[in-house]
């Protein structure tokens, strides 16, 4: 089964696991299995129409699936999928005083 690497911001939705192995013969099937197993993750990576959100990129090994076959890209057992969300941080988060 292909392995999916979960980045830090999304680990709270996968019971803190940094990688998850789920079945699927295509990227779409793997992501469907992943969000079935971890339903809280669904809203994070798919929009209301069930399409991948534009600030979460999915890579099959080192290639962006947008430039492969998107959801239909075949995924083999030896493949690794990475979810790579956009992060803005350069330094701080919430600060005392509430100033951002």
């Amino acid at each position: 089964m292909p392995k999916v690497l979960i980045p830090t911001p999304l680990r709270q939705f996968t019971a803190k696991q940094d990688s998850v192995t789920v079945p699927g013969a295509t990227v779409g099937e793997v992501l469907a299995a992943l969000t079935t197993e971890y339903p809280d993750l669904r809203k994070q990576i798919f929009n209301d129409e069930g399409k991948l959100r534009s600030f979460v990129n999915v890579y099959l090994n080192d290639e962006d699936i947008r430039y492969l076959g998107k959801d239909a890209t075949p995924a083999a057992d030896a493949d690794t999928l990475s979810l790579v969300p956009s992060i803005a941080g350069g330094a701080h988060g919430e600060r005392p005083g509430g100033k951002h």
Binding site: P9, R53, P85, S86, A91, G93
Partner: peptide, 20 residues
């Protein structure tokens, strides 16, 4: 090219997720 759009505020919990 990498990220056409930013996440909407509040979707990725920023307040709870702060810290580095």
């Amino acid at each position: 090219c990498l990220y056409p759009e930013p996440p909407p505020p509040g979707l990725v919990p920023s307040c709870a997720e702060g810290g580095v």
